[in-house]
């Protein structure tokens, strides 16, 4: 539980540099794809799309987006496992957590059931990201290579799949940004460390499982210690 006393400034390693770079690739390519994609279909942005520049950028963004799985495989296999396995497996605490998710939504993490490295909400988000990224890539590739040879209905189907995936991913992103803001989680993706106090509040089972030594737990982060930057996979 979270009732034990916590040293003030201890920090826990949340993301090594590999995952942080991958996430930056993911976030930037996604936003680029979203904007250049919307330019094609949304009236107010449409005039800026004519000429084809946005379509070229959309394809460049798409290539970066499609390289993400490769990046995970090369530089962050534990992360890949988390996305593809952990995010689809929910234990009893997870179910209990989900039943009270409204409290977490309103900023109360303290009395929630204990969670692992990913809380059940993150698992849902990540699972959604995995599924709908696969769909948006598949439909996007169909639009890319098949556009000229589709029947109008085939084209509409691919575009619809692409649109629905975009919608789901965008709504997931809104939620993702919401919790990042409410729980001040950005530091974990930027510096790599989060205060142990908050880590225990939201992921107590995970913190308990960590070895009590560097680089996992440090007394105070001034700069990232060498050992955290150079992950074994990097």
């Amino acid at each position: 539980m979270t009732t034990q006393t916590l040293p003030h400034k201890r920090q826990v390693l949340r993301y090594r540099v590999g995952p942080r770079i991958i996430h930056a690739m993911l976030a930037s390519s996604f936003v680029l794809l979203l904007v250049t994609g919307l330019m094609l279909v949304w009236g107010p942005l449409a005039p800026y799309a004519a000429g084809g520049g946005s379509r070229l950028i959309h394809r460049i963004g798409a290539v970066v987006f499609m390289l993400i799985p490769v990046a995970y495989l090369l530089f962050d296999r534990p992360g890949a496992r988390e996305l593809l396995w952990d995010s689809f497996h929910y234990d009893r605490d997870d179910w209990k957590w989900l039943k009270q998710v409204y409290r977490y939504f309103l900023g109360h993490a303290a009395e929630m059931p204990p969670q692992g490295r990913l809380n059940a909400g993150q698992k849902l988000h990540h699972a959604g990201v995995v599924i709908f990224s696969a769909l948006i890539v598949a439909s996007g590739l169909l639009l890319w290579v098949g556009k000229g040879s589709f029947t109008p209905n085939g084209l509409a189907l691919a575009a619809m799949l692409h649109d629905v995936s975009m919608l789901v991913l965008t709504v997931l992103l809104v939620g993702h940004l919401y919790f990042t803001f409410v729980y001040n989680a950005l530091q974990g993706m930027v510096k790599g460390y989060i205060p142990e106090r908050e880590a225990r509040l939201e992921h107590s089972k995970w913190v308990d499982s960590l070895p009590e030594k560097e680089p996992w737990i440090v007394e105070e982060v001034v700069e990232s210690p060498e050992s955290a930057v150079l992950s074994p996979e990097f």
Partner: peptide, 21 residues
């Protein structure tokens, strides 16, 4: 809208923990 409320709630629970510590 919810972010404003939830952020305040969370800051409060962190402060509570700190005081307890």
């Amino acid at each position: 809208l919810a972010a404003v409320i939830a952020r305040r709630n969370h800051l409060q629970e962190v402060r509570t923990l700190e005081a307890r510590n």
